[in-house]
Design a protein around this nucleic acid. Structure first.
Lengths: 238, 238
DNA sequence: CGGACTGTTGAGAAATTTCAATGTTGGTGG
DNA sequence: CCACCAACATTGAAATTTCTCAACAGTCCG
């Protein structure tokens, strides 16, 4: 929870009361094993989930079996806050590692949004940033080379993980397979493998042993066309 | 404004007072010519925009000149409600036709969100649906053939326009060029042209004279893998 | 009538996928 | 401790998709 609060507080101050209300949202904590579905497509839910520990992703499997990952959720992410209002989920949220997840009953969210307008706006913002990340992915998939696209993802995750204290220097853990990366980038596994090799050879970044190691942060950003503005990490009173 | 209210009311009832407050949000109405920037990237704004008439898009131009369209905004869309909280915009909103736009000062939005929690949730929902549309685009760009991708776009726009009464039968006006479609789908102009020809030849849909004509709605949906659930058009009390 | 914008077509080049084989690693049971 | 298995990563090569370049046609409008 500390991480969620840290993230929200980046954008505007939270009062002690607001922090308390956030903490009180949680009804219980659940553990998921790698591969478990945290939220299953189609099944209406009565609570939203905050990732406390572990990595999860939002994905959709098409009828022909192809899979697309639309987002990664890291600790501190309110990963399906939107299910609070859009009960029917079109996607599955999948635990990629062991995950510890805080469950927030929707009726508590209704209460909080009735009583705490400022906190409501702060939560709203976090969903708006999710949308901004989606737009950046669309740009990546549409108009960036696979090389730049992968570089951009590594940049995005680096910045997001750093905000919640999950990087060490220029290194961070990204416990996914190359196949997962492929499904996030919309390319084939073979091509992912070759593009990773190219990123490595150019001395930008290495992805090995489920760890991302950035060799040249400035060059990586340049190659990716990465501009962190869209993550809205600066203070912006609401 | 009627269209915005229609759309919101699809999901849950709005009281007369809430409708009035929505209408009272608007400070003035501006007209834009085709090609005008309704919202310019980087420039902090003090109001949000509701499209009353005309077609606009959200786009980003990369340093190398390539362009990606991330969304189309149709009449009734609160096209940059998120700027209310994320002042710095990373994208430009461009008028593709002559547009009539209602301007909503951010301070009125703060007031409304302070005083009308239910209406706030309804507005929040509309941004969540924008995000759901983004995710569907990511899926399209990542894992659907260009054929299915274009088909999917035509399905999406058909359903969205129909909700605000802007279709006639299986036909609707889509005043964009093939080049615009290319920049939305992340493919080249030539390839767009050929894919449109294929859609036409297979008897699914024709795009000509800036008009989309659906020949076989069932087959088009099937080819696109289109499932309108993500647009959340059913009633869902909040 | 001419020019600007848009749409169409052909053909070679480049990116990406698919298929298929091989290498590597880490865990497990004997 | 080791053989073996499963999952993951790597590589080569042909097939396919998509892009780029380039030319030309159609339309609208001043």
């Amino acid at each position: 929870m500390e991480r969620l609060i840290t993230k929200l507080a980046l954008r505007d101050d939270l009062t002690a009361k607001e922090r308390d209300r956030l903490v009180a949202l949680v009804s219980r904590v659940r553990e998921f094993a790698p591969g478990d579905e945290i939220v299953r497509e189609e099944i209406p839910v009565e609570h939203s989930s905050i990732i406390l520990q572990g990595l999860s992703c939002r994905q959709k499997v098409l009828r022909d079996g192809r899979r697309q990952i639309t987002a990664f959720h890291i600790p501190g992410d309110f990963c399906d806050l939107h299910s609070f209002m859009l009960k029917r989920m079109e996607h599955t949220v999948l635990a990629m590692t062991a995950c510890r997840v805080a469950l927030v009953p929707h009726e508590r969210l209704v209460q909080v949004t009735n009583e705490e307008p400022h906190l409501t706006r702060m939560l709203w913002i976090s969903t708006l940033i999710d949308a901004a990340i989606h737009r950046e992915w669309i740009i990546s998939m549409g108009r960036r080379s696979t090389f730049a696209r992968l570089a951009h993802l590594f940049c995005e995750l680096f910045v997001r993980l750093r905000t919640v204290g999950l990087t060490k220097g220029l290194e961070y853990s990204l416990p996914v397979t190359q196949s997962d990366l492929s499904d996030a980038m919309g390319i084939s596994l073979v091509h992912t493998n070759r593009t990773l090799a190219a990123l490595r050879q150019r001395g930008l970044v290495t992805f090995a042993n489920r760890t991302v190691n950035i060799h040249d942060w400035a060059a990586l950003q340049r190659a990716a066309g990465f501009d962190p503005t869209y993550l809205h990490l600066e203070r912006q009173p609401r």
